[in-house]
Design a protein around this nucleic acid. Structure first.
Lengths: 190, 190
DNA sequence: GCTTGCATGTAAGAGGTTACATGATTCG
DNA sequence: CGAATCATGTAACCTCTTACATGCAAGC
């Protein structure tokens, strides 16, 4: 049910339409929770039916009309209740790690280009996060004072930055390992 | 479909029953891919139906009989095909990060004990991984030579270690932030 | 006698992905 | 004139979780 809660947080930060939420789930919120527009529309309708949200039809010029959602009192109460109940620490799911272990049953060096691709993707994300940090928070050591919401958003962003940095370093380590294995068995091709 | 591939990798490393696989998914393989026994039994039956696996009924004494699965030639081919096709770099899903951003709309200090709990859980996992590394690979700088499978398993384990270490450090950072926010607003209770 | 471990499953439901569908406007 | 953006949805399908169910053996 975490999508529901992520939507509540996002709408409390700023009301918006399903379309706008879908775009946020490609960016800021999406750094730690993803969702497609189909899923978002479905959940919004359910949440509205449960009385957690308020809808306002907004007529626009030059654009289709939209439904602007905001959080109703019961929605805020639901979020508070969730914040006070413990959630289990999750384990990650990393498909690439499955591939790396699987490479032992194929040609390990054939994975090099795939791992390089992932390394670049994570490095891109890292640079993107760092740019966002400079833009929104004035760099890693923000000039205080920021408000509570900004402080917490910055703390979450620092987590994203730490994750991407760690991942890039680990994938470099994996690439070293794969190249060393290739060098040790000269019979194999890349 | 990554569960299918994780099962193929695990069965190539060592054939076993559904029950044994479920236990592996609580440990080694489970560090980067989780699955419950219900899911595993269902997928095993499907994979067997697709001809990817071989089954052998093993009678045991003092224990129920079991079905020992191993990878058939088409299963190995399916794994190889998957290894050669690119997978998309995944984004993480981190429920706790949603909570941290949501805390702006509640009492941020109320999250402290929850974050502490998660920090301890990740620290436990870290110590568990480090113990496994010493046991199975003789520590971070393994005395070479290990075989290819062990090298790759060690590389994946180093990723798990890096992830847990990064997470513990980040949660310490989050705790600092939450405590600083509490100190700045003395009216709030914990 | 009770709990834990071994071993396998069914059933229902929630959550998530992929494909398809529509229609207006703006920009190159 | 075609592609991209804004905006909302349906339908089918797959995956994953949770609850329930069974039965034997070993150890406390």
């Amino acid at each position: 049910m975490a999508l529901e809660h992520a939507i509540l947080v996002s709408l409390l930060e700023k009301p918006g339409s399903g379309y706008e939420l879908a775009r946020r789930f490609d960016r800021s919120i999406g750094y730690f929770w993803t969702a497609t527009h189909q899923q978002i529309y479905r959940v919004l309708r359910r949440m509205d039916g449960d009385g957690l949200l308020e809808v306002r039809e907004v007529a626009q010029q030059g654009r289709p009309d939209k439904k602007e959602y905001s959080v109703a009192a019961p929605g805020r109460a639901a979020l508070t209740a969730w914040l006070h109940e413990p959630v289990e620490p999750e384990s990650i799911r990393h498909e690439l790690a499955v591939k790396i272990r699987g490479a032992a049953f194929d040609e390990p060096s054939a994975l090099i280009s795939e791992v390089e691709r992932h390394r670049e993707a994570h490095d891109d994300r890292l640079r993107h996060y760092l740019a966002g940090e400079r833009r929104d928070f004035g760099g890693p050591d923000a000039p205080r004072p920021l408000d509570v919401g900004q402080e917490l958003q910055h703390a979450v962003l620092r987590g994203g930055i730490a994750f991407e940095r760690m991942t890039v370093a680990w994938l470099d380590d994996v690439l070293d390992t794969l190249r060393r294995l290739r060098a040790a068995r000269p019979g194999s091709r890349d």
